[in-house]
Design a protein around this nucleic acid. Structure first.
Lengths: 327, 327
DNA sequence: GCTTAGTGTGTGCACGTTCACACATTCTCA
DNA sequence: TGAGAATGTGTGAACGTGCACACACTAAGC
């Protein structure tokens, strides 16, 4: 910056004013801009951050990247939605991956070190150490699909209970008598709530024997889960899978077993991901407003950055049911 | 840091030595560590970066995020592979998304501002402005799947020509007579090379009429492309799709048209993504070593960071053929 | 002619670190 | 006993910015 100032025959202060606004004469501005171009000067972000005490960057923190990036079709949309909003306010979205213990400490350091003005945290669980770090840090944060023990932190999400209840009821309305569920990720709100919604829809007809629990929202879990259900009760004529990927796996297992969908068995999923349209037959499912979640999360972080108190009751987005041929 | 020093009854210098190594007495170390815990001190990353002139962060820059994150099953694996290697050397992977003109300037500023020690750039094309920025910046960089005009920059990739040639020859060896190709993304090296490999395999038998060009590696493009090919020549008995997603679309179009795979038509894809296993029938395809690409790219950046001159001839990874039931 | 407001510019301090250097203490060995 | 090495500690100068302040000049109003 001093080089630019000398080159233009002015002082550092005037160069700074050209860059950040303030009273500058036309002559000085022209000379400085020419000097900047000639010297190839680029302001040093670290120095600027240091003195400004802010970085204009918001972290997007992803846990369990193997499950999410490789299996969850929504993560990309959430990220792009958030980027869209942050970009409009000239904030940089910085995606950080936590894939190991080492990553956790490094990311925590990154967040605590004044490197980030805020954070969006995806798919955190109660026991994830980063949630503790963030809540101690008083960093403007929003959770997407918050973990069970953090009711006091701002979040955006969907109402998994009522969405699951609604699609189960819709499935019941097609005249199915024995409806099973492949429940996944019960250690998360989303997983547990989808099961709760299923249970609520069935009411007295709920039969715990017709619920198969699988660990993750995965295709392979869907295959295994469906096989187990058919073993236990060959008379099943309806299935609610906890996600589209699980439903896709279930369709595969049903095909193996010689069942025709939707004639013999009706199948519904959850997410309305690209899976849903590409299954055979196309899946009836709950539409998850993924990019909307990212946008709202980014907006919540930005509003906190402007000093507003966040709404701790959380924001729930609508989840319309999309009815296709699988049920 | 001064607070910690006072609390522990020492000077800033000793605190710094506790954090960064050097001669420190056991008493001083204990007192300082206790003080750090009590004060809740975290070193300021911006200040450290400023004085160190480095950030221990490597950018992972993604273009066309809509196509990549939503359609390309490899991007996640590449990213996780890179993160794995960088994490081992205590570098932070920072994923930056370029989704607009505004994003481009912001990311360029981010990279130029001393915020990043290096960069991994995915799926860049010749005209992408960020490639110009990076090459002017002399920032340690590696391209994954480099753009056509940047032969002078280090990159990792696969040999699309010989891979495409190999799988086409394998398909020919099953006795198919009329083999078509759904070629995609011809404005990239990868797309153009896969077509070149297909052509090389067929030699004199190559018929330009049996090549359908589609813009992107997408499922829907596969559906459209296959329909067009069947319209033009109903006698087709083999298809090489430029990617697994395209192949999945082709399978759908073949099913529509009442063709049985592999009996009537043999289909092969490219990528060995999760699509490949979940198609019906499972796809024969070229295995793309996605996480390996990320790992090599990260290693190349790290070696440049240690002052080594990068190998400008590029690194090509092996792409074994995975033969399944679709051909 | 004096004050006041508006415009334009230069200077010094602060941000929170690391590192080189100076200095103090203890230990080893001729 | 004294020199020299090994170990431990404090201090000041950077790193590259932004901002408050001081100052200079011009124009307008009384």
């Amino acid at each position: 910056m001093l080089d630019v100032a000398h080159q233009a025959g002015v002082s550092r202060g005037t160069v700074s004013r050209v860059l950040n606004g303030g009273y500058v004469s036309v002559d000085a501005r022209d000379a400085i801009e020419a000097a900047i171009a000639e010297v190839g000067y680029v302001p040093n972000t670290a120095a600027r951050n240091l003195v400004m005490q802010q970085s204009r960057a918001v972290g997007f923190i992803v846990h369990e990247p193997h499950a999410l990036f490789l299996e969850d079709p929504n993560i990309g949309s959430i990220m792009l939605g958030a980027n869209e909003i942050l970009s409009q306010s000239d904030y940089q979205l910085v995606c950080l991956i936590i894939d190991s213990e080492r990553d956790t400490t490094r990311v925590a350091r990154y967040l605590s070190g004044g490197f980030m003005d805020g954070a969006i945290i995806v798919s955190a669980r109660a026991h994830d150490p980063i949630t503790r770090v963030v809540s101690q840090l008083a960093l403007p944060t929003t959770f997407v699909g918050h973990p069970p023990d953090l009711r006091r932190l701002p979040f955006v999400g969907i109402d998994n209970i009522s969405s699951a209840k609604a699609i189960t009821e819709r499935l019941m309305a097609t005249g199915r008598r024995r409806i099973a569920m492949i429940a996944a990720a019960l250690d998360r709100d989303s997983g547990a709530d989808r099961l709760a919604g299923f249970r609520a829809a069935l009411g007295e007809k709920f039969d715990p024997n017709l619920v198969e629990e699988v660990p993750l929202y995965e295709y392979s879990a869907g295959v295994v889960g469906m096989r187990a259900l058919l073993d236990r009760d060959p008379g099943i004529d309806g299935v609610f899978a906890a996600s589209d990927a699980v439903a896709a796996g279930a369709l595969e297992a049903l095909r193996e077993a010689g069942r025709v969908v939707p004639t013999d068995v009706g199948v519904v999923g959850f997410d309305d991901s690209s899976w849903a349209l590409r299954c055979h037959p196309p899946l009836s499912t709950v539409h998850q407003p993924a990019s909307g979640l990212g946008e709202r999360a980014a907006e919540l972080v930005l509003s906190q950055l402007q000093g507003e108190k966040p709404d701790l009751s959380g924001i729930l987005l609508d989840t319309p049911i999309v009815w296709r041929e699988s049920a």
